[in-house]
Write a protein that binds this DNA or RNA. Structure first.
Lengths: 229, 229
DNA sequence: TTGCGTCTGACACAAAAGCGTCATACTGTT
DNA sequence: AACAGTATGACGCTTTTGTGTCAGACGCAA
């Protein structure tokens, strides 16, 4: 279950093709025909990546991309622009909006999937679906298992995501706010103290294998996942 | 990898290329120039996969694909559509017929083989007819029997297919949606909770032999069939 | 066709697991 | 010591899953 992808295009045919391709590759796909619909979906469940048509009825794809970049919620969601023609000017402008990549129609499903995966690996390591390992701690999103050495340890969904986040973003301090954004999906009205509780639960689960010491408190700032003290 | 593949294309040159590529990869290849011939071969010896040209003299590839999907015998045989141009509309329509993939000419032998293998991997572990075994649990599709140790256990058709799916796709977590696709067929309008019910029935059947613990719930995600907890 | 038994999917309710918040205890800093 | 930030256990609530039941579909036999 690598990731959730929002497709914004007014042509149902394109959406159908994209949906098919993404589904084949095990992505979850949500769809919108215009910017307004898209925004509703974005607020409802924040996607991991957005495929955005350059030309849209109403608010254009370019304008919508700018807006997505301005707003805090979507600031870090990668965007791939879809355009009808390979026009250099368009390309420059598209990248100017903050798009992460750019594809000209027609494109093959294979190419689409390849690019999506590339972007996700680069920008959203959590959504790539790859096995993550830190020392002897191994987390496998595809089986949803976590191994510490050869011990299999069981985590609740939230602790699993939390550990996944930490393991894909090691060595850095993350504020509670950031953790909430990454693990809870950023539009949650949740008390920051709640992070503490889940940190506690995660530590407890890791305790048996000693990996709890990887989950480090940085007083006044947040938490860090790191091998050395 | 076992496999008999039917190529339906009116151009002998294409057929020759495909035949060559498939033979190299150890597939058996049978050929037809039109839908009528194809149908004769299908009835004589059911192929594991069909490569079907989009444009055929007489009954078009699209229509023939629909027919293959309608008929019981061929309902589950994967189809790869071959189209002349990368026309988005064609692609979409091809997928609408129930094709599992499509390729635009010209394609390389390598690409062909890769796609064929991909499809067979995805669909065939269950369709191969091979006996599947996990620990002492043995499922034989040809006799439709399941043995746990030396106990013979009886399952309903759906539970049988469900177990078959699990045994050919162990270790991974499968969302209910995915399970529905694989076990019920990808065009079933079925409540996701129904999966739970059949999981229950399967577990109950496996209970006597203790294999019910292999059927694991991954909360918030789906189910997994796995030896270790 | 009719009748019979099995299989199925939906539903409703029960049970379980997970979640977020809070109050309180604790720890490090100044 | 006083303060601010953090850790932790408990608790009420929500979401998700488990399970029994039932009406209808289906296959089969007469």
């Amino acid at each position: 279950m690598p990731g959730k992808i929002l497709v914004v295009d007014d042509e149902p045919a394109i959406r159908a093709m994209v949906r098919f391709a993404l589904k084949q590759a095990d992505f979850t796909c949500i769809e919108a025909a215009d910017a307004e619909q898209a925004q509703t979906l974005v607020l409802k469940d924040l996607p991991d990546l957005i495929l955005l048509d350059w030309m849209l009825p109403g608010v254009s794809g370019v304008d919508y991309a700018r807006r997505l970049r301005r707003e805090r919620l979507t600031q870090n969601v990668p965007i791939i622009m879809l355009t009808a023609r390979a026009d250099e000017d368009d390309k420059v402008r598209a990248l100017g909006t903050g798009a992460d990549d750019f594809m000209t129609k027609p494109f093959s499903p294979r190419e689409l999937v390849a690019r999506v995966k590339a972007i996700l690996r680069r920008i959203a390591p959590m959504a790539s679906g790859d096995v993550v390992a830190v020392a002897d701690l191994i987390l496998d999103p595809s089986t949803h298992k976590v191994l510490a050495g050869d011990e299999h340890l069981s985590l609740g969904p939230t602790e699993f995501r939390l550990l996944h986040f930490f393991m894909t973003h090691t060595e850095r301090v993350h504020s509670r706010e950031r953790v909430l954004d990454a693990v809870w999906g950023s539009n949650a009205y949740i008390d920051e103290r709640t992070v503490d509780v889940h940190i506690r639960r995660l530590r407890r689960a890791l305790m048996a294998s000693g990996y709890d010491r990887y989950v480090q408190t940085v007083r006044g700032v947040g938490y860090r996942f790191s091998g050395d003290g």
